[in-house]
Amino acid sequence: MDRRSCGQKPPKRAKTSMTDTNRTQEEYPKDSLDRYGDDLCGVILSYLSLEECFRFECVSKQWQRSVFKRQNYVNVEKHVKKWQIMSGKTIEDIDWQILESVVRKCPNIRRFDIEIHSEVTGRVFE
């Protein structure tokens, strides 16, 4: 893995991971979040809103791997509505690509909340 430590300040910490079985652990500055394994990183990031998950996906590869893992409950309604208002679209203009991208990126969705009232979408759902 291509990881460099940022800064050479002592004290270092071994990567925290309960799933890491190999003993060749890299060490990270103790004040760097990079020291956390994917599991703990995922737990931390699970408290972000869906919107922030998308915004922070490009922080690092670890974040990209972890950020959507624990998004179990997704209420896209708010986001889609906001997007509609911001881009001046009406309820009929749902961008299905957005919904597809949400579903693709969040592998563990258990619930997906969206409420749509319109003839067009009514037909789509039929």
């Binding site: 291509d2 990881r3 460099r4 430590s5 940022c6 800064g7 500055p29 004040d31 760097s32 979040l33 990079d34 998308f54 915004r55 996906e57 490009c58 922080v59 690092s60 590869k61 670890q62 974040w63 990209q64 991208s101």
Partner: peptide, 19 residues
């Protein structure tokens, strides 16, 4: 949070575009 960015600028731009 002292996180090292391990994306190439191209990769980062691609994610930005997607989102």
């Amino acid at each position: 949070l002292k996180i090292h960015n391990d994306f190439t600028p191209e990769e980062e731009a691609a994610i930005h575009k997607e989102n």
